[in-house]
């Protein structure tokens, strides 16, 4: 497949996309092009600073939305399960143990091998 054929196939595929997808794609492409243009022609301009601030604000909202979903979907069920099984990962229950010191477990990998890992 040559380049012309590839581009025309891509164009045809895009033309068949639903309207809302086309709008989203056009919007994302525009944002990318504006960002690249600012970086190329006015990386220290006030307009770029304002643009960055605006985009970051939008990003913060989206991050919050996505993290909310991740929190509810991943943390929530595990937490419910832990509560049902009465397990407390933080060992918060008041106790009358003679000591609250816990043994320091050496890493089973050995000191040098363990140091190569972040865990």
């Amino acid at each position: 497949m040559n380049l012309t054929e590839y581009v025309s196939r891509l164009g045809a595929r895009l033309a068949h996309l639903p309207t809302h997808t086309k709008v989203l794609l056009a919007f994302a492409t525009s944002v990318l092009l504006v960002e690249l243009a600012f970086r190329r022609f006015g990386p220290r301009s006030k307009a770029y600073a304002r643009w960055t601030k605006g985009v970051e604000a939008v990003g913060a909202v989206w991050t919050a939305v996505l993290l909310s979903i991740v929190y509810l979907v991943s943390v929530g069920p595990v937490s419910v399960f832990m509560k049902l099984t009465r397990k407390d990962l933080l060992d918060r229950a008041a106790g009358s143990d003679p000591t609250f010191w816990k043994a320091h477990e050496p890493n089973p990998l050995g000191a040098l091998a363990a140091a190569r890992h972040q865990f």
Binding site: Y71, V75, G76, V78, S79, V80, M82, L89, R92
Partner: peptide
């Protein structure tokens, strides 16, 4: 992560 789970929501 353990803390988030233990203190959900």
């Amino acid at each position: 992560l353990s803390t988030y789970i233990a203190t959900f929501p």
